[in-house]
Write a protein that binds this DNA or RNA. Structure first.
Lengths: 231, 231
DNA sequence: GTCAACGTTATTGTTTACAATCCTGCAAAC
DNA sequence: GTTTGCAGGATTGTAAACAATAACGTTGAC
């Protein structure tokens, strides 16, 4: 691991001896660390030593400390008194719970989305349905995964429920590892595709109950898949 | 709106120790501030000046800073760059949203609780039903409010859904002001009592769908009450 | 009288230094 | 052989000093 990898921005007026440029503002650092965790760059249970992170991200230890505190509240890192912080490891059981809660909230969002769906949004939904179907037919896994994200995201946006959006975002962050693992599971798309299509159809038909039901079933299926993946 | 200066709420620890005791650990400080906010000692939009809080709670400014960061993530305080922190004011619209999300999650919990209900828990539920009914008959508002809390809390516990419990706890913290206002509204208990009894009955009958439905209706009613309270 | 430039003050953001705590390894005693 | 006590080092918790920023009031010009 390179310790001196940072750009050597030396002072123009030669005599200055200082080589350091240690300045990463706290909010930015929080975003960076969050990214590193959800992207898997920092793996579960990995120790997060303040001094090391400080060095790594060119930030003061105080800022690192604040960042770890915030991410701890977000549920991405785990802290114990005088023992430091580590990337929180989410158990299968917990991932299932998260999916269940998501299911409850997103079902409500789907219901609201069905009530409020406008022509433009319906058109977008239908296009997602087509893209998804095509992706499954041609076996484009990443395309399908992207559509999946787009669909869920769009429905939440359509619901106009900011609190729900915020809550789901946080929950997703914690379970992202399992989402990823699942989306790479062969055979999974062919199971979830009809569920997605049912959700889209219900929302486009302005049928709140059917939309809620379809979303609920879909995430129950996801939870079941996580349970049986175990690993 | 007067630009009231910093907090002058008395420190929670009643016994005033020696003036020179500049040490309140960070986790404890977080708990204290959270308490002060949800209990209403610190009112919405009140400025939270770091130096003042530091003095008030005998904590270093660094710790105050960490506490404010964490509470900001929890949604209890609002921060803007270089402009400081203040107690976050939750709008009526937002309180309704929170109640809706709670409804979705708690309905799921009620469903699970109905599936898992054991004899002891059923007995406790029935006793709550009696206490509630009695409280309404004799007009004991605070007793009814306590039963309300106990009921919701018990059902969440019964569901065994830790993630749901955690999520709801956070949401409740943000909207607690409205809960309080509502519980003091005369006539409200006579509306919510039958709803509560219906929930209890469904859970005790091991009827998940009915329990979910009853809980959902109940919180929809709460949301409606918040909407119309407006003020 | 209004408006704009400017300096002052209050408050936050950041860094550094210091103290407290915990883990590790080793040696001595039982 | 196991356990207990004790340095030594690593890491976190805390405090104070320093720098940067934005709000405020004042002065001066038009």
């Amino acid at each position: 691991m390179p310790k001196e990898s940072s750009a050597t921005a030396e002072a123009p007026h030669g005599a200055e001896r200082s080589r350091r440029t240690p300045s990463t503002p706290a909010p930015q650092l929080v975003a960076m660390l969050r990214d590193a965790i959800v992207s898997g760059h920092l793996v579960p249970n990995q120790r997060l030593v303040e001094a090391d992170l400080s060095e790594e991200y060119n930030a003061s230890r105080g800022n690192v400390r604040i960042a770890l505190s915030e991410l701890s509240v977000e549920g991405l890192v785990e802290r114990v008194q005088n023992r430091g912080a580590r990337v929180r490891a989410v158990s299968v059981q917990e991932a299932v719970e998260i999916t269940e809660v998501r299911g409850a909230i997103e079902a409500m969002c789907a219901s609201k989305a069905a009530k409020r769906a406008g022509p433009d949004e319906i058109r977008t939904l239908r296009s997602i349905a087509e893209r998804m179907t095509h992706a499954v037919e041609t076996g484009l896994l990443t395309e399908y995964s992207q559509c999946n994200k787009d669909l869920h995201s769009l429905i939440i946006t359509m619901s106009g429920q900011r609190t729900a959006a915020e809550t789901i975002k946080r929950l997703r962050g914690q379970a992202v590892r399992y989402q990823f693992r699942l989306s790479n599971h062969p055979g999974r798309p062919s199971v979830s595709l009809p569920q997605h299509l049912a959700i889209i159809e219900a929302v486009c038909s302005h049928d709140p109950d059917a939309a809620s039901e379809a979303m609920s079933r879909h995430l129950e299926s996801v939870a079941e898949a996580i349970r049986s993946s175990d690993a």
